[in-house]
Amino acid sequence: MRKPLLALSVLAGVVVTAAAPAAAAPTDSTVVTFAIGTANLEIFAPHSVNLGSTFAGTPIQGAIGPVQVVDARAALTATWVATVSSTEFSTGTGSAAETIPPALIEYWSGPLVSSTGSGTFVPGQPTQADAVTLSVPRTAFSKTSGSGNNSATWNPTIRVNVPATVVAGTYSATVTHSVA
């Protein structure tokens, strides 16, 4: 009777061997990285604009043309503020110069004309009723929330309240838009 017991033991050994898990293959991991580059925060405005002509004591106004902020910083918090300021309008030179101070220059950004990216874009002065003087730098436009690359374009208007006491001539000033 020993033969059947031996055969049963051999068969059980085969079954046990077949049921054992296979050895796992060796593994290794690779960490893969890449970088997202950043660019600049820039602002673009027309190089010059001619408002036309008027008479002493009569205001003159017109659109400056499209002003655009391009934010290519790819920032997690992509907020910015664009400001506007102006020099005095002047004509002539030296002691013969005639000026119109920035306190007589009004500005309003108007609404957003176009935008890209996500977030909240806020006009500084959405309507003519919101116009501000440029006696001090003013907020022209801002982006208060959002992330990633974005852009905003607006078409501001400027009004010069020409005093009745100015002399005839061609007046010029520099209106500066900046962004930070």
Rank of each mutant, 00 (worst) to 15 (best):
Q125D: 00
F89Q: 02
S114V: 09
V160Y: 04
S135R: 10
S147G: 13
S135V: 14
L76D: 12
T153V: 15
I158K: 01
K143T: 11
S85W: 01
T83F: 00
S114W: 08
T127E: 04
A131M: 09
N161Y: 09
T116C: 06
E106Q: 11
P163Y: 07
Q128C: 08
L104I: 07
A140P: 05
T120Y: 10
T91E: 07
W108G: 01
E106M: 11
G94F: 11
A152S: 13
L76E: 08
T91F: 05
P126F: 02
P101N: 08
K143R: 15
G146N: 12
A103K: 12
T91L: 04
N150G: 11
V160N: 02
S109L: 03
N150K: 12
V167W: 11
F121P: 01
V113K: 11
P102Q: 04
E106R: 15
A103Q: 13
Q125L: 08
Y107R: 02
G148P: 03
E88D: 11
S142D: 09
R159G: 03
T120S: 09
A75H: 11
G124H: 01
G92Q: 04
A72S: 12
D71Q: 13
K143Q: 10
G148Y: 05
A75P: 10
T116D: 08
S90F: 14
A140T: 07
P126M: 11
P156I: 06
T139I: 13
Q125H: 12
S142K: 12
W154A: 00
T139M: 03
G148T: 14
G110I: 01
R73N: 01
A168I: 08
T77M: 05
P137A: 13
S142A: 10
N161L: 06
T157F: 02
S115K: 11
N161H: 14
T120E: 05
V136D: 00
T153F: 02
R159W: 08
N155L: 05
A78K: 06
L76V: 15
R159E: 04
